[in-house]
Structures are given as C-alpha cells and as structure tokens.
C-alpha cells in the first residue's frame, strides 16, 4: 500500500480528534463537576506522563534522578520553564560526566 495513504490517514485521524472538541464546544460548561474535572485534567495528564517516565528519559536512572531533583527544586522556586528544563538536562549531563 502507498505510504502516502498511510500518512494521509494518520494525519486526518489525528487532526479530527483535536479539531472536534476544540472547534464545536463554544458554550461554557455549567456542570460544576465537569468544570472541576477539566481544570484538573492538565495536571493529571502531565503528572501521569512524567512519573515514572522521567526516570528513564536519559537512559540512566541516576542521571535522570539528579535531573528530576534539580527540576523540582527550581520549579518550587518558580523559575521560568526554560531554566527548569535546561537545568535538569545540564544536571543530568554533568552527573553523567562525574559517574
């Protein structure tokens, strides 16, 4: 089968999944439960995607753990996103050099 067809199907399905709720939900949701649920969803998604995957993100659990600790500490003190992200990476890199 042509690769182009696969690519078109992939892209179309992914787009429609994103587009339908984003485009056609323009009323404010009244239900207190659903509004609370939608407020919590981003934090729940990010947390579930980060833990425990972050500990495998550098290929070495020790360098990843050091990077994680640095990220949590800097985030705790409200450092900007880019600072937290790159400092975590730098910490993992340096730890790898030391080990």
């Amino acid at each position: 089968m042509s690769i182009a067809i696969y690519i078109i199907v992939m892209a179309a399905v992914t787009y429609v999944i994103r587009m339908i709720p984003f485009t056609f939900f323009n009323k404010k949701i009244k239900s207190r439960f659903i509004r609370s649920f939608l407020k919590y969803i981003p934090y729940a998604v990010l947390s579930a995607m980060t833990i425990p995957a972050i500990f495998y993100s550098t290929g070495d659990i020790i360098t990843a753990a050091v990077g994680t600790i640095v990220a949590v500490a800097l985030a705790f003190f409200n450092c900007p996103l880019i600072v937290v992200a790159l400092a975590a990476s730098l910490a993992a890199y340096i730890t790898n050099l030391i080990l």
Partner: peptide, 16 residues
C-alpha cells in the same frame, strides 16, 4: 541522552 529529560523538566516546571 541528557536532552531526553528536557520535556519532562518542562512538565515539572508547569505542575509544581
């Protein structure tokens, strides 16, 4: 490999 943690670091910066 050290760059592999960048996105997760960003997630942490958003959630914490």
């Amino acid at each position: 490999s050290a760059l592999g943690i960048v996105l997760y670091g960003m997630f942490i910066a958003i959630v914490v």
